[in-house]
Nucleic acid binder design. Structure first.
Lengths: 133, 133
DNA sequence: TATTGTTATACTCTATAACTATA
DNA sequence: TATAGTTATAGAGTATAACAATA
């Protein structure tokens, strides 16, 4: 079991998520909230469906997520046609995301610090190779 | 977000688990069943509590897990003192685990095959550095 | 007092199915 | 016909609290 890539991957991910969620608790944001906000910031006006595809989230689960973020005035929804909603950060959302990003970036640098110096870029590439296309 | 170690780690783990669970479906074994069986095989007589500590599982969740494996005659429980139960694989458990291990090992080699040649050992070390001790 | 195993329970996350309205 | 969004629901997986029996 010590040599199983899959087991190590699962334990590493769980440990990472546990420590990250502790840091994010003050913001009352779930991990999918954060990744949604980050994606909306990078792609203003992205539709819910496109956001779901990018993040690997079911549309059915995006509906309450987006409604929650809108109810907190963190995002705005604008109709782009009769059925699609474009998503945008509000100023409030932008500000909260800025604070959360500082925490996330710090957490991510702590993760990287646990890895051997020269291997960090390669580690990220390897992780991405396991789920991207 | 492309550069976040934590996000890539989470997506990679989720993608790996999804493909693994498809392969394990014929065995009717959950991921924690598998890791428990592997750990019992490597440490015959391990108690439920020790198993929980090794796998990062709550004792409360081990009770039904062990009961399920015992009901399927995959493990045996033997009292080591008045309160502790030592766990052992049955012949049937050993045989099923053997088949499951073949699938898991194959899956793990497929994962490794997606990584650049020279980086696989380092990748495993990096993952382990993120959750061990 | 601390530990083992257990029960009951709650919470989060995610998946599925069915529906509407629009394209 | 296919897509966007929604609702309701069900299933994992995991966490907490409390308890009895034992060390």
């Amino acid at each position: 079991m010590q040599n199983l890539l899959g087991y190590a991957l699962r334990r590493a991910s769980a440990a990472m998520m546990e420590s990250l969620l502790v840091r994010l608790a003050p913001f009352d944001l779930r991990s999918t909230d954060i990744s949604s906000l980050l994606m909306i910031e990078a792609n203003p006006g992205i539709t819910q469906s496109a956001l779901c595809r990018a993040l690997g989230i079911q549309r059915a689960n995006m509906a309450p997520l987006a409604a929650r973020l809108e109810a907190r005035s963190l995002i705005q929804r604008q109709k782009v046609d009769g059925r699609s909603h474009g998503l945008f950060l509000t100023d409030e959302g932008s500000e909260l995301l800025g604070k959360a990003k500082a925490v996330i970036d710090h957490h991510d640098r702590e993760l990287a610090a646990r890895l051997p110096e020269g291997s960090r870029a390669m580690f990220l590439d390897a992780l991405n190779a396991l789920w991207r296309a």
